Computed example of a mutant assay.
Amino acid sequence: MYQRILVPVDDSATSTAALRESIRFAIDQKACVRLIHVIDLAQFAWSANEFLDVPQLQDSLRKSGEQLLARHAEVLSAQNISAETALLEAWGGNLARSIVDDAAAWKADVLVMGTHGYSGLTHLLLGSVAEGVMRHTQVPILLVRTPTDG
């Protein structure tokens, strides 16, 4: 039984699809859902910081992340699903490691996450957070794929 469902979310269609699947699991299993959103605070720190207010941009990332989590939590609440949220901060783009570490610390029974299903050059250039999570976690994963544009 899956009593503790971890769902990494962002603002993509794949994330929304994963959230829908987590709702199905949570209702069926009467489970608790933990929504997490990972932000990379280093993405602005390495370039053009003489032209940008890096702390302000990082605060904006945090604020946007909190708003995103609140919107997704409302969807769960409307379904009478017990939910908690967490905004995770990473430095240097290792988003997958942040998800894996949080799943272990929270003792998740399953991860439900979206994937774009990129292949070829697109996959090589963009990488895959889902693939990174799969490589490093001991927690079962349900990957929810949505069609890509290219």
Rank of each mutant, 00 (worst) to 15 (best):
S15M: 00
T16N: 08
A17Q: 01
A18H: 02
L19F: 03
L19S: 00
E21W: 09
E21V: 06
S22G: 15
I23Y: 02
R24D: 12
F25N: 03
A26E: 04
A26L: 06
D28C: 14
Q29C: 12
Q29M: 13
K30G: 11
C32T: 14
C32D: 13
C32L: 13
C32W: 10
R34D: 00
L35W: 01
L35A: 04
I36A: 01
H37F: 04
V38N: 00
V38Y: 01
V38H: 01
I39L: 10
D40P: 07
L41C: 14
L41S: 15
A42I: 11
Q43I: 12
Q43D: 05
F44N: 12
W46H: 14
S47H: 11
A48P: 04
A48M: 15
N49V: 10
N49W: 11
E50I: 11
F51G: 05
F51Y: 12
L52I: 10
D53T: 04
V54G: 06
V54L: 08
P55G: 04
P55A: 07
Q56L: 14
L57T: 00
L57Q: 06
L57D: 02
L57H: 02
Q58T: 08
D59A: 12
D59W: 02
D59E: 14
S60T: 10
L61K: 04
R62L: 10
R62H: 12
K63N: 12
G65P: 02
G65Y: 04
G65S: 03
E66P: 00
E66V: 11
Q67T: 13
L68Y: 02
L69E: 01
A70I: 06
A70Q: 15
R71F: 07
H72A: 12
H72G: 04
A73W: 02
A73D: 02
E74V: 08
V75K: 10
S77D: 10
S77F: 03
A78V: 07
Q79F: 08
Q79H: 15
N80E: 15
N80I: 08
I81W: 07
I81L: 08
I81N: 09
S82Y: 06
A83P: 00
A83Y: 00
E84G: 06
E84W: 01
T85I: 14
T85L: 08
A86E: 11
L87K: 07
L88N: 05
L88M: 06
L88V: 12
E89Y: 06
